[in-house]
Design a protein around this nucleic acid. Structure first.
Lengths: 190, 190
DNA sequence: TGATTTTTTTGATATTTATCAAAGGTTTTT
DNA sequence: AAAAACCTTTGATAAATATCAAAAAAATCA
């Protein structure tokens, strides 16, 4: 578990033994059950989780009360409600574990302490922020001006391992369509 | 111009005289004409611009050859094709100046030198990356599962000063609709 | 200013997608 | 294994949006 985190961070910067020790001290092992909410609408999110197995779903309710899935993050990855965590404002999304998961948790205070103590972590923070920005830009591009069937095919190409295991209802709103429409698209593409 | 950059950066970190001098040395003044491309599809983008007046438009062509506007950035702001600049891969978008603009330019090499020399800039980089991530998440949320009229109204609320001055054709694809539809929406909301 | 080009609007029609209701499947729970 | 809960599919219809073509309006240029 910790090794998985080390190797994930190793993609961004080179870690010394001292760094690794600091990491091991700060991150706390947590178990999260399937469907549990990692972050909640209306509450400030002060957690940063490193998830090394499974995936999470981001969702919220639109003006009509319809549940909208806005994002998925697949392990190995950091998970937090980015906007809330960064700004300290209440989150407008929920984050839900889609499987029983094990994770390593870091509080916002501890993260800031890492930032203060070592510029290397500042760099990790920057690189992760950059990857988040790229991630959501990709989602954006997929949504813009392509018919739903094309969007679905692109999603399949991008996450071939996952899409067929995620309940259809969640994928639908991620693509900006209803479940019924996605069901028909799937059928038509067999 | 430089003062505007200092004050913009001052929102993120406290700058010392030495920092300011370093900034003044690295950033180069540039003029950019209306409609000029700041970055181009297929080319690697190695520029980071600080724009303190006007705004830029991001666009690309979809599979049918239709031009899609994917983003706007309004001064004062940094502008770059984020993904290309960060990854070193060719850009898949074009960035176009929407007015005659003046800007301060920083090369990727100089930026990296700033990062190496001073962790403070690493932090600025992180904070800017974070704000970019938030920016594109907001666009994403707007697109997800709301009828076009609602999306347009939200856009108006968010950028009241700008939307009425941006040519309608560009706003349309940003909202994920055609110009004709946007024209009708505008009419219906008078 | 008048001519030219670009942008926006309008109309008619086609296509895509949503909605609502109900029936089948699957999975989970007891 | 049966019951309950949940998820997916199907059908009929309505609503939203796209497309194509042309006219009107606005901006730019000579």
């Amino acid at each position: 578990m910790l090794e998985s985190l080390h190797s994930y961070l190793g993609n961004f910067v080179q870690l010394t033994d001292a760094d690794i020790q600091m990491i091991n001290e700060k991150f706390v092992y947590t178990k999260i059950k399937k469907n549990e909410l990692i972050a909640e609408n209306g509450k400030v999110c002060n957690r940063l989780l490193f998830v090394n197995k499974g995936y999470v779903r981001f969702f919220h309710f639109d003006d009509n009360g319809t549940e909208i899935t806005s994002d998925f993050y697949f392990a190995p990855t950091f998970v937090t409600t980015y906007t809330s965590f960064l700004t300290g404002l209440p989150s407008h999304v929920n984050v839900q574990a889609m499987c029983n998961m094990e994770a390593l948790e870091l509080s916002k205070n501890d993260l800031n302490e890492l930032y203060e103590r070592h510029p290397k972590f500042e760099r990790v923070g920057r690189l992760i922020a950059e990857s988040v920005a790229i991630h959501s830009e990709e989602h954006l591009f997929m949504l813009l001006n392509q018919p739903a069937g094309v969007r679905y095919r692109k999603l399949l190409e991008k996450y071939p391992l996952y899409i067929n295991t995620i309940p259809l209802q969640y994928i639908a709103s991620y693509l900006g369509i209803t479940q019924e429409t996605l069901s028909r698209i799937r059928k038509s593409q067999l």
